[in-house]
Amino acid sequence: MQRQDLLHAANEFGTPLYVYDAAELDAALSRVKTAFGDARIFYAMKANPNLNLLRRFAAAGVGFECVSSGELARAEHLGLAGERVLVNGPAKSDEEYAAGARLGATFIVDRAEEVGLLPPRSRSLVRVNPAMQISTHDHLATGSKASKFGVTLEQAPRVLQALADAGHDALGLHVHIGSAIRDANDFTAAFGRLSELRAQTGPLRVLDTGGGWGLGADLGGIAERARATAAVFGAELWVEPGRYLVAQAGTLLTRVVGTKHTGRHFCLVDAGMTELIRPMMYGAAHPVEALWEREDQATEPILWDIAGPACESGDLLARDVALPAPERGDLLALGEAGAYGASMSSTYLTRSRPAEVLYEGGGWQVIRRKENPADIWRVEE
């Protein structure tokens, strides 16, 4: 998308606004397919569950990894079932077990106790936690020793055997060490620890190496290591990209409502933690682009904190962003917002969640309308 396209979208649909570039969605999936070859791909739906994006991935042969009954309902609504659906999560409910069974999905077993909770004759994988130091924010490190996810390396062979003994179809192992991982060597280390289990597990049918690749990661290198690990077990390779497939396709557009100069320089905008909570939650840094140009711009850019409208000190979308002097009505674009922007948005302060629009073929399609306050309180009456 070009700057004029973003300006047009903001003027037509208002701000805050989530915009997605269909070409980048397709390009990201193509990069994954090229790197991982014939590996089976499951999209981690939590990154962005918009039905229009899901339909696009489903039409391309992608399955879905679901972690709630609501996500399973989305998969069912789209007609996906069987081997194209995974049920994940550390604390699955009875409703989620039932939904997974109804769809004939594969369950990712997160603890030994689950062996006795699965529906009869379930297909299953055992999630292993390699207990490593992961190069990402602590809240995103699912493969660390302190994480709530998975069984230990020592427990994994016993859980696999328990699944088989209970009559379940134990396909193999699953490992997902985190999200937005900065150092690709983390994957090498995790896969290496998994390989050590081969003597105890014997050959497996499936090895699911999850996702979590940083947006600038060397996918080819990571894929090569994943394939080599799968070969150790004689297993088919599965992967679960989420953020990688949608983040760079999405932009959050927001307008400047004013500025103030106190202890710092604040650029006040109409989007905040309710539209993009990742900076507050994970310390995530999203690229920020000013979409204004003024010929009479006389001052050099200074550093601004991009501050949202919530009455919360942490409601900051970015710090120390170099901008030419912003004026009320100017437009900012926050990049890499396609993942965990809309999906983690909230109605805190009874703020209406923004519209979502898709850019394809030179035009815009509304794929989720903006809420109004009555939409929010309808379930309360």
Rank of each mutant, 00 (worst) to 15 (best):
Arg182Gln: 14
Trp238Lys: 01
Ala223Leu: 01
His174Tyr: 13
Gly192Asp: 01
Gly234Phe: 12
Ala170Asp: 07
Val206Leu: 06
Leu219Tyr: 13
Ala226Glu: 01
Arg205Phe: 06
Gly242Pro: 07
Ala217Lys: 13
His168Trp: 09
Ala228Gly: 10
Leu215Glu: 13
Gly216Glu: 15
Leu204Met: 01
Thr229Lys: 04
Arg225Ile: 04
Thr188Glu: 02
Leu207Trp: 02
Gly242Met: 03
Asp183Ser: 07
His168Met: 12
Gly167Pro: 12
Arg182Met: 04
Gly172Val: 08
Gly214Ser: 14
Gly172Leu: 02
Ala231Cys: 07
Ala184Met: 11
Ala190Gly: 09
Ala189Pro: 01
Val206Tyr: 06
Glu236Lys: 05
Gly212Lys: 08
Arg225Phe: 01
Gly234Thr: 09
Ala184Phe: 03
Ser179Leu: 03
Ala235Tyr: 07
Pro203Cys: 08
Gly210Gln: 06
Gly211Pro: 04
Gly167Glu: 07
Ala231Tyr: 05
Gly192Lys: 10
Ala230Gly: 07
Ala199Lys: 12
Ala180Tyr: 13
Leu219Gln: 02
Gln200Arg: 15
Gly202Glu: 02
Asp169Leu: 00
Phe191Thr: 06
Asp169Ile: 07
Phe233Asp: 00
Pro241Cys: 02
Val239Asp: 04
Val175Pro: 09
Gln200Met: 06
Glu236Leu: 03
Val232Trp: 02
His168Cys: 09
Gly192Arg: 07
Val232Asp: 05
Ile177Trp: 10
Ala226Cys: 00
Gly178Thr: 10
Leu237Cys: 10
Ala231Ile: 04
Leu194Glu: 12
Glu224Tyr: 09
Ile177Phe: 10
Arg227Met: 12
Asp183Arg: 12
Leu194Asp: 08
Ala226Leu: 02
Ala217Asn: 08
Ala184Pro: 11
Ala199Trp: 02
Gln200Pro: 07
Asp218Val: 01
Phe233Ile: 08
Arg205His: 11
His176Arg: 15
His174Gly: 05
Gly234Cys: 05
Phe187Gly: 01
Asp208Leu: 03
Arg193Ile: 11
Ser195Trp: 04
Val239Met: 04
Arg227Asn: 09
Gly172Phe: 05
Asp186Glu: 07
Ser195Ala: 15
Trp238Gly: 04
Ile177Val: 15
Leu197Asp: 06
Leu237Lys: 04
Gly234Arg: 08
Leu173His: 08
Gly220Met: 13
Ala166Met: 14
Ala184His: 11
Ala231Lys: 13
Gly221Met: 05
Asp218Lys: 14
Leu237Gln: 06
Gly242Thr: 00
Thr201Phe: 04
Gly167Val: 07
Ile181Cys: 10
Ala228Lys: 13
Ile222Asn: 00
Gly210Met: 06
Ala190Ser: 15
Ser179Ala: 13
Ala228Cys: 13
Leu197Asn: 10
Val239Trp: 00
Asp218Leu: 06
Arg193Phe: 09
Thr229Met: 13
Gly167His: 14
Glu240Val: 10
Ala170Met: 11
Phe187His: 11
Leu197Cys: 12
Thr209Trp: 02
Thr201Trp: 09
Ala230Cys: 07
Gly221Lys: 10
Arg182Pro: 00
Thr209Pro: 06
Arg182Tyr: 00
Pro203Val: 10
Ala217Phe: 09
Gly234Asp: 11
Glu224Asn: 14
Gly172Asn: 09
Arg193Thr: 02
Asp169Gly: 00
Ala184Gln: 14
Leu197Trp: 08
Gly234His: 12
Arg198Cys: 05
